[in-house]
Write a protein that binds this DNA or RNA. Sequence first.
DNA 1: AATGAAAGTAGCGTGGT
DNA 2: ACCACGCTACTTTCATT
Lengths: 152, 152
Amino acid sequence: MDELDSAILRHLQRDARQTNRDLARTLGIAPSTCLERIRVLRARKVIRGYHADVDPAALNRHVQALIHFQIRPFSRAIIEAFKAYAAGLPEVSTVYVVTGGDDMIVHVSTPSVDYLHGFLMDKFTERREVVGFRTSVIYQHTHNQVLEPLTP
Amino acid sequence: MDELDSAILRHLQRDARQTNRDLARTLGIAPSTCLERIRVLRARKVIRGYHADVDPAALNRHVQALIHFQIRPFSRAIIEAFKAYAAGLPEVSTVYVVTGGDDMIVHVSTPSVDYLHGFLMDKFTERREVVGFRTSVIYQHTHNQVLEPLTP
DNA sequence: AATGAAAGTAGCGTGGT
DNA sequence: ACCACGCTACTTTCATT
């Protein structure tokens, strides 16, 4: 992980579909060198994948929310099972297992407020391990697609 | 947005670097057709971009957290300013503006717990609009990279 | 580890159905 | 709208440094 690798990661986070030639040209290296660097970064799992960023509204997901869960009993097996359950629901985009006031925070996106309400009622209220949850509707969110390496 | 567009989005969310030819072949359409569909989806901003997914640990970001903020006074200008401030910090990956108990939830990733503590102290405690915040350290998180269209 | 050339392959415009 | 063709450009391997 030298400065060149960092530069490659920075550029591929911003635009994953630029050609290898273009990337090599902007970095001032040969295309074959650039290709090999990227191959190694993938093999080392530093680059985990390449994903298109799709507007949720185009997928009929106009209402997003964060759901804060309290789970009891708090054991590894229960947490793992609930995490797997939540992550498998098509409305769910992210599951965070956290410390603090809540045990789990789940990011969901749904067509409407009505759909969200029905979804929460149908999928979570009946589960024994869920002793309580709280909904935060998301008004806006901005995502920083390019993360730089940090120095300790 | 027909079934073919949905299929294209599904595949590009899973792997944004597959060639147009491969995608066309798996969908059973001509490459030129596929290319034109993708071009329109980009022009309509349904596809917002293509991004490499990089392991945060490789960027020296071993400790992630969600920070829950209470902001006062609660006005559009104050919220916008704080959002812009937070989103501009390199440690921050996502800013959610929400309803409910909190006003803003910020996803951060840092090298260590010490770094996180110093970061919170240096960047947030001195800001007047921050009347309180709470930290949830993230133990695990799973992200669903492929979002399907939902039917109302 | 980086390069340059060479072979295979893909992108993308044009025209046709 | 979709497909077929063809030119140009890209990717990728390998010998060389």
